[in-house]
């Protein structure tokens, strides 16, 4: 099987880089699904439909990974450097952790949708900054493992905050 061993970037015929155009990615994704989706082969044999199901599952997984800057960064780092132990290395600074506590307190204290919206915007800005940093990490030929992991871990924390804000506004 060529495709299942192919990496996600190859699958979408894209260079293995952190920066990518999401609109273009989506077009490629829809184009691929319109070839392999089991519905396109609903009148074919059981076997072909099973293959299609596997392929469509893989393409969905690849798209979800490449679409999310966090998942894309993790995938790309492991693609470039081999398996990464995310718990080791990339220590977070005391300043960052203190900031996290402050964010969490702010989310818990937010008493309106507007306040939550405002927090969401600010967290998103931070995410964007981290994503720009990540793009820099991946641009250089010799990726600095420690600092790339640190930035990714920070981004992960920020995503957790976004999830928490979402949860709060769901139940608000």
């Amino acid at each position: 099987m060529v495709q299942s061993s192919a990496n996600y970037f190859e699958l979408f015929k894209l260079p293995a880089d952190f920066s990518l155009d999401l609109v273009d990615l989506k077009k490629r994704y829809l184009r691929l699904q319109s070839v392999v989706h089991p519905d396109k082969l609903a009148h074919r044999s059981e076997l072909e439909r099973r293959r299609a199901l596997q392929q469509a599952t893989l393409i969905n997984d690849a798209y979800q990974t490449l679409k999310s800057p966090l998942l894309r960064a993790k995938y790309l780092l492991e693609f470039k450097l081999g398996e990464v132990n995310w718990e080791q290395g990339g220590e977070l600074s005391m300043a960052f952790l203190t900031e996290q506590i402050q964010w969490r307190e702010a989310i818990a204290a937010a008493d309106s949708m507007a306040a939550l919206e405002d927090l969401k915007e600010r967290v998103k800005q931070q995410c964007q900054q981290l994503e720009t940093e990540l793009a820099q990490h991946f641009k250089v030929a010799n990726i600095v493992r420690e600092s790339a992991i640190a930035t990714i871990n920070q981004l992960q924390f920020m995503y957790k905050l976004l999830e928490e804000i979402q949860l709060r506004s769901d139940t608000a």
């Binding site: 495709q3 699958l11 979408f12 015929k13 691929l32 070839v35 392999v36 293959r51 392929q55």
Partner: peptide, 24 residues
């Protein structure tokens, strides 16, 4: 069946098919 699937996937994003698609 496997070869056909791979062929379809690689065809989908190659050459003129992709260009056509990008113009949408």
């Amino acid at each position: 069946a496997a070869r056909r699937m791979n062929h379809a996937v690689s065809e989908a994003l190659s050459g003129h098919k992709l260009e056509e698609f990008q113009d949408d």
